[in-house]
Design a protein around this nucleic acid. Structure first.
Length: 755
DNA sequence: GGGGGCTATGGGGGG
DNA sequence: CATAGCCCCC
């Protein structure tokens, strides 16, 4: 038992307690799903504070703002209101807040604006046009991701042009001039006083790197203890920033990272598991703790997760286990079409709610791509099941909201050309595309912002009226912002920009809801001004300007607005489900070409990432896990017939609800002609008959390569190989004579027949 | 030069 | 199925 003031330590298991109480020096916590990671993070911070560390000296980087908020609330429960002084938030939101104070040191205005993906693409498109390049070859999306990858790896335009590997790849893709677009893009962002998402990291790095004496030292002293959650999803740049903060002569290296290589699902945006390996070699005195006990899920679910992940070769060795009851086996729903998939899931939800007395909010439907949500929404409405869709088109990406925001942006930062382009002719005031283009060209040639051009150049009579109108409008907004608070200004902007008026002309349901959306945006701003919404840190939460508001919402994601009070079924992408848990989870669309996605099929590394995504999906479930797939679905406009996902087959029948899978295999098809078109591959080719009574399992350690063994489901097999994790490759000729199965010896029961 | 309607094309995950 | 680009009319 601990001293009364440390009583929270009694709520931890032994490894958790060690991770919480090892406060000094580098620490790595490898935390399996449901292993109490949040609890460890929370108590570790609480413990730091309880042992005398000033809360404002603790930096805690989380994956979502919501996670940070929850963590702070829980810390507050242990140590009281001083928890508010902890610096907790996402990399992006925290660095944005720091840059709001420091950006002038690296050539940006402190009230820089944040370009979202749309702004970035639109700017890249403009540059492509200015360079007279073909938009079909240089597709803005592809160019953007090359630039993003370069930034995430600290490759400047100069380094890019000098890098043979990158340049060679671009030449191969017939896009040799990406480096020029990159160079121009960087210059344009600087000129516009704008940072994109990658810049929030990159400019933070530059700030620390280029100002070693004052600024870097200041933040090194500020953040005496650094903690990073979901470290497996950080990229090279993020790690380099962490090193600037925590590694310096005489640094105590108080850095603690928490993560799980098996849950790394963001390599597409530059995250690299290499960071974990790098961390081990950068900090040789590192203490590592592995949290392997799963408190979330029942036995069958944990076992299925373990089975699936063994198919990935590269992993940090660990084994997740649970002492929770066996629970429900995993059910597989086979549907004829995506519509039927939706219906059967709705049926199952109703049944589960009755049989297991679940609430709607205990249930989640997960999918690989956001576009799959539509069908589920339709069916939930049909069955009167309340639901909420997370992700996809968030509130702040609606057109009417972006329009108002664009006016606010141009008001707070008149150099923001992307905002200007968005609203200079909305509502219509007679300024057409070619006029806007020529303003853009003038701005480019004179190295000034479009706003400056508007203020300096005389236009032809024809467009003059609209132009003068626009300039005076923005000037009035700026004046209002000088004298009023964010809410009053925003209200003024909404009213005088003409947007609301323009929308009122539209009497349709959509038109009305757009006006309602603008109203709720204004409510949000009012709330921001009046209530002390604590984000990140108490000391910097008093900034109530419009530009501070803009930064807050730019980094807000849908998950951050989740409404716990509502009792509705949650629908979201698997990426968005990371870190969440539900009593019952449906993982849908389990078909080859969809999950795993067709883009991943040719690359084993991408398949492994898809598998980790599947691993994340199934480990969200506490008690009930249901997998579903459709034989046929509309993809890209026409009907496709996909095979069931390989991931279903990677779960052994031990853990599947065989009654449902076997009996339903031939049920539920619509028209027979669909059946004929669907080349079904049986989940298991043959089911050998085995004498169960005579079976006697051998010790896992005794299984060796070359032996002949007996498995209760698969029959006789030959052991090809056993690796150090006690995973055996075994060929079961009766099941599949061509492919070995990977059997986890600690879970599967095998009897040695012949040595 | 600006505005509106029609056809062609392309489509992952997210801060 | 949504957006961009194109064409035609004002």
């Amino acid at each position: 038992m601990s001293l009364p003031e440390f009583s929270y330590l009694d709520e931890l298991n032994e490894v958790q307690r060690l991770a919480v109480t090892t406060l000094e020096g580098p620490v790595m916590v490898i935390a399996g799903p449901g292993s109490g990671k949040t609890r460890v993070l929370t108590y570790r911070i609480a413990h730091l504070i309880k042992t005398g560390v000033y809360p404002g000296h603790i930096l805690a980087l989380t994956f979502t703002n919501k996670a940070a908020k929850e963590m702070k609330n829980r810390i507050e429960g242990v140590v009281g209101p001083q928890a508010k002084r902890v610096w907790a938030g996402t990399f992006h939101s925290l660095f944005a807040k720091i840059l709001r104070v420091e950006a002038h040191r690296i050539g940006f205005p402190n009230d820089f604006t944040i370009y979202d993906t749309d702004d970035t693409k639109s700017l890249i498109t403009e540059i492509i046009n200015q360079l007279n390049l073909d938009k079909k070859v240089y597709s803005p999306g592809a160019v953007r991701s090359r630039i993003s990858a370069a930034k995430s790896n600290l490759i400047t335009p100069k380094l890019y042009a000098a890098n043979e590997e990158l340049m060679g790849l671009d030449r191969m893709n017939r896009r040799p001039l990406i480096y020029q677009i990159y160079e121009k893009y960087v210059a344009r962002c600087l000129r516009a006083g704008a940072m994109d998402f990658d810049d929030l990291l990159l400019q933070m790095f530059r700030l620390l790197y280029q100002n070693p004496d004052r600024t870097r030292e200041k933040y090194q002293n500020q953040f005496k203890y650094v903690m990073v959650d979901e470290f497996q999803d950080t990229n090279y740049l993020q790690y380099e920033i962490l090193k600037l903060l925590a590694v310096y002569p005489e640094s105590p290296n108080n850095i603690c990272i928490v993560g799980d290589d098996a849950q790394s699902i963001y390599s597409f945006r530059g995250a690299t598991i290499e960071n974990i390996l790098q961390f081990e070699s950068d900090f040789p005195t590192l203490k590592t703790f592995k949290l392997e006990q799963n408190y979330r899920s029942t036995h069958f679910i944990v076992e299925a997760a373990n089975e699936v992940i063994t198919y990935n070769k590269k992993q940090i060795q660990k084994k997740i286990w649970t002492d929770r009851p066996a629970g429900n086996k995993i059910k597989v729903i086979k549907a004829a079409s995506e519509t039927e998939e939706g219906k059967r899931i709705a049926d199952n939800i109703i049944e589960q709610k009755n049989r297991h007395t679940l609430k709607n909010k205990d249930i989640a439907i997960l999918y690989r791509t956001n576009s799959q949500s539509r069908i589920f929404e339709e069916q939930m409405r049909r069955y009167n099941i309340p639901y909420r869709v997370y992700g996809g088109l968030s509130f702040y990406s609606r057109k009417e909201i972006k329009d108002i925001i664009a006016y606010i942006r141009i008001t707070t930062n008149d150099k923001d050309d992307e905002a200007l382009k968005r609203v200079i002719n909305y509502p219509k005031r007679g300024i057409g595309d070619s006029t806007v283009d020529s303003i853009g060209q003038l701005a480019e040639d004179n190295d000034m912002s479009m706003w400056e051009v508007l203020n300096k150049i005389d236009f032809s009579q024809r467009t003059k009226k609209g132009m003068v109108e626009f300039v005076q409008l923005i000037r009035a907004f700026k004046a209002k912002a000088e004298s009023s608070d964010a809410f009053v200004t925003a209200q003024y902007i909404a009213k005088h920009s003409g947007i609301v008026e323009h929308l009122k002309a539209d009497k349709s349901v959509e038109g009305l809801s757009r006006i309602e959306n603008i109203d709720s945006l204004l409510d949000g701003i009012k709330d921001f001004v009046e209530n002390d919404v604590l984000e990140i840190n108490e000391e910097i939460s008093r900034d109530k300007t419009l530009s501070s508001y803009l930064q807050t919402i730019s980094l807000m994601t849908d998950a951050d607005e989740s409404d716990e009070a509502m009792d509705s079924v949650s629908m979201m992408s698997i990426h968005a489900a990371k870190g969440l848990e539900f009593k019952s989870v449906f993982v849908t669309g389990l078909e080859e070409n969809l999950f795993p996605s067709y883009q991943s099929l040719s690359d084993p590394n991408l398949i492994d990432e898809e598998r980790r995504l599947f691993y994340v999906a199934i480990t969200r479930a506490e008690e009930i896990l249901t997998l579903s797939f459709a034989n046929a679905r509309y993809q890209h406009g026409d009907m496709r017939f996909n095979d069931p996902s390989r991931f279903i087959e990677e779960i052994s029948e031990n853990n599947l609800d065989s009654v449902v899978t076997i009996q339903n295999v031939n049920k539920g098809f619509g028209e027979p002609k669909i059946l004929g078109a669907f080349k079904t591959k049986p989940l298991m080719s043959g089911v050998p008959k085995i004498d169960v009574d005579g079976f006697k399992a051998s010790e896992p350690g005794q299984i060796k390569a070359g032996q002949k063994v007996l498995h209760l489901k698969f029959g006789e097999g030959k052991v090809i190989n056993v690796d150090e994790r006690l995973v055996a490759s075994i060929l079961f000729p009766q099941v599949d004579p061509n492919n070995e199965k990977r059997i986890m010896l600690n879970f599967a029961k095998l009897q040695i027949l012949e040595d």
